[in-house]
Amino acid sequence: MSVTDAANASRTRRVRAPSRGRRLTQALVPYAYLSPTLILLMVLMVIPIVMVVGYSLMDAVITARESHFIGLGNYVEILTSSKFRTALANTFWFVAISVVAHMLLGLGFAMLLNSESVSAVTRTVFRTLFVLPWLLTVAIIAILWRLLLNPNGVVNAILSGLGVVSGQHEWLADPDIALAAVTFINIWSGYPFFMISILAGLQGIPKDLYEAAEVDGAGPIRRFWSITLPQLRPIIISMALLDVIWTSQQFALIWMTTGGGPLDRTEVLSTFTYKLAFSEYDFSGASASAVIVLILSMILAFFYVRSQQVRE
C-alpha cells in the first residue's frame, strides 16, 4: 500500500468514527428530554420532602424565630401520643373495611355484568348505574351524602318509614356510627374502580377453559374457584395494594363530611397531620407525622412494585 493510500484510509477512519464530543452529546440527549420532568420532580417532590424531614428534626419551626435541632424528639412525641394511636387505629379500620368491600362488590358486579344470562340492554343500563359514583368528584360525593344523611334527609325518611330508626338520626355526628358512615360513603364511591378492572380481567379469560371444565363436570362454584379466581389473582392483588395506598391517604372525603369528629372517632392519619399543622400550628410535629405516613406509603409502594414485577 502506498503512502497516499494509507493516508486516505486513516482519514476515512477518522471521518467514520464519531468524535468524543459527539458521543457525549448523543449520550446526553435522553437526559435532555427527561430534564423538564426531572426538574418538576425535584422542585415539587424532592425538595419539599427534604424540607419536611428537616423540619421534623427541629423544634418550633416557622412559628418561632429560632429553631433548634432535637433529633427524634418529635417522632417520640407523635408515636406516644394517644391521638396518633387513635388516628392509626381508625385508619387501619377504615382502610381494611373499604378495601375488602371494594373487592367483593367490584367482583360481584363485574361477574354480573359479564354474565351471558343478562341481556345486552340490561348490562348497558347496569354498567352506567354502577359506574356513576366513580364519575363524581369527592366534593360532590361529600355534599351529596351529607344531604342524604341529614336528620331531615332521605335516609332517615326511608328508615323511619321501615321502622328501622325512630326520629331524626344524626349519622355523621353520632360517635358510635360516624366512622362506619364515612367508611360506607368511601365504599360507595370507590367500588366502580375495582368493578371496571375486574370486568376487563373477566373478559380476558379464555372461554375454552370454562368449556373444558364444564365437559369435565365442574359446576359453577368449582369453575369460579379453579378458573376465575386464579386468572384474576394478579389483578386483584395489584388493585388491592393500590386501593390500600389511596384509601390510607384519604383526606378530602373525611374532612368534608365529619372533619375528623365527633370526638376524634373519624380521625385518620391525614386529618391528624393536617390539624397538627393548621389548627395547633405544631409544624414540627406535623412534619414528623407526615414523614411517618410517607414511610408507611413507601412500604406499601414497595410491595406494589414487587407484585407488578412478579406479575410480569
Rank of each mutant, 00 (worst) to 15 (best):
M1R: 11
T4F: 10
D5W: 08
R14N: 06
P18T: 14
P18L: 11
R20C: 09
G21A: 15
L34S: 10
P36F: 08
L38F: 12
I39K: 04
V46G: 05
V50E: 06
M51V: 11
V52A: 08
V52C: 11
S56A: 12
T63I: 13
E66V: 11
G73N: 15
E77F: 04
L79V: 01
K83Y: 10
W93R: 10
W93I: 14
A96M: 05
I97W: 06
I97S: 12
T122L: 15
T124A: 15
T124L: 15
T124I: 08
V125N: 05
R127G: 12
L129E: 03
L144T: 11
L144W: 05
L147G: 06
L149E: 00
N152L: 15
G153T: 04
G153W: 06
G153C: 09
I158Y: 07
S160P: 12
G161I: 00
V164N: 07
V165G: 11
H169C: 07
H169A: 08
D174Q: 09
D176C: 00
V182D: 04
I185Y: 01
N186Y: 05
G190A: 14
P192Y: 03
Q203A: 08
I205K: 13
G217M: 14
G217E: 07
S226V: 11
I235R: 05
I237A: 12
A240R: 07
T247D: 00
S248A: 13
Q249M: 11
F251A: 07
Y274I: 03
F278S: 03
S279N: 15
E280G: 06
E280P: 04
S287G: 09
S287P: 14
A290G: 08
S297Q: 13
I299T: 05
A301R: 09
V305H: 06
V305P: 08
S307W: 07
